[in-house]
Design a protein around this nucleic acid. Sequence first.
DNA 1: CGCATTTTTGATACACGTCAATCTCCGTGG
DNA 2: CCACGGAGATTGACGTGTATCAAAAATGCG
Lengths: 226, 226
Amino acid sequence: MLKDEKISRSAGPQALRAKQWRPHFSRGQRIYAGEDHGGAWRVLSGSVRLDREEPNGEQSFATLAVQNDIIGAETLLFGKYTFTATALSTCVLEPWPEGHTVPAGDSLLHTLARTQRRAAEVIGLRCGQAADRVRRLVMMLAHPSEEIPARQVAGELLVVLPSRQDMADITALTLETVSRMVSQLRHAGILAPQSNAGHPSQRSFAVLSDAADTSSAAGIGGGASL
Amino acid sequence: MLKDEKISRSAGPQALRAKQWRPHFSRGQRIYAGEDHGGAWRVLSGSVRLDREEPNGEQSFATLAVQNDIIGAETLLFGKYTFTATALSTCVLEPWPEGHTVPAGDSLLHTLARTQRRAAEVIGLRCGQAADRVRRLVMMLAHPSEEIPARQVAGELLVVLPSRQDMADITALTLETVSRMVSQLRHAGILAPQSNAGHPSQRSFAVLSDAADTSSAAGIGGGASL
DNA sequence: CGCATTTTTGATACACGTCAATCTCCGTGG
DNA sequence: CCACGGAGATTGACGTGTATCAAAAATGCG
């Protein structure tokens, strides 16, 4: 099954023909705006922020979508988007559901369940100390899904961080605090810059996957605060 | 008595026969636990907190359900609950979907859309200053839905506040800070105790509905902080 | 080379967390 | 009926983590 996947994905002619349009978006680019007309998408790679318009007219962070998440499922009902979607990092989308106009009931329920779980995780990103919040956000972005293995290098995960402002909006911190915490994680060895070439905003970091527990997080907060 | 009146007025005697079990829960009572087997429910009145089990085994606030929200929709797929549900205030539930085993596609989509919007609002509850967060939470609890008018008294909304600890979990503040902010809202005239009789934890407050904008909130923060 | 944008770093202030005492209200039992 | 104890809420004093304001550094681009 793994072999089949690899073959069809990389070279199978049928897969190539069946493949639909897969738009690419670069960091900071608008994917769609609230009230726009369109369909739902699966996030194949990268991450997306969704913003809602508040009663006072302000745009504010609403939720996050990472690899394999579905965005814009509400268009199946209303025909138009509820939120505004923006790329947090370079990302690739695919129309959803694939090939059908109406998704199977199970498929829709899976989407609902996954969206709920994601929302709960995002809410959790706004609890606790700043260093831990930023660390958990990085882990979430680096850990795209259980099904599809993340890009890995020697047991570590690679991640391209969103802008500091975006990370601040997500964690309910300020841009400056996020920047400090990222530096802290670097000094603590949790985040390791992979290279200094290319655009600084597009540098990828290696994330120590064993830094997921809170015990080490306490160590970060204490040790690196000097 | 009162219930009979409402039923006969809204739907006639058939509705009475078709009516299903409507369990009641008191403040702090567990409705269901994660992993439990059961079905989905509509919140007819009151409010419910949903908690998830974190990777480290802790239970932490995941999301909120108020009047007319659906909880446990994931059981339609998995047969068991993803979250743990607890009553924030006295609440009444009703099995969902009513009378059918499988909900119509539109109904499911509506649930999805509503849940997403609710999650976005809850995320918004963790932004900004403490006084404003608590005020917005109170408004959310007092403003159950657009379709079903809230209990009203002379143009004001009535609300029974959850425990300070629950409010703290939702807003990502501490119990003490929430208590201070509730006092502040009282002094500012946004919250008016309706009576001093009965259990203190079950006292209802009148909420000034015109205090929804942020301009007056700024006034609270400045004036009452002395 | 100079300007714009993003990020980083520093100094200071304050809003909130923490710890602790007190109060209210209830249930229980003498 | 009142004394006692417990749970939840309120209030106070104090410390600190983060916001705020400000400046500099890093990098891309014209």
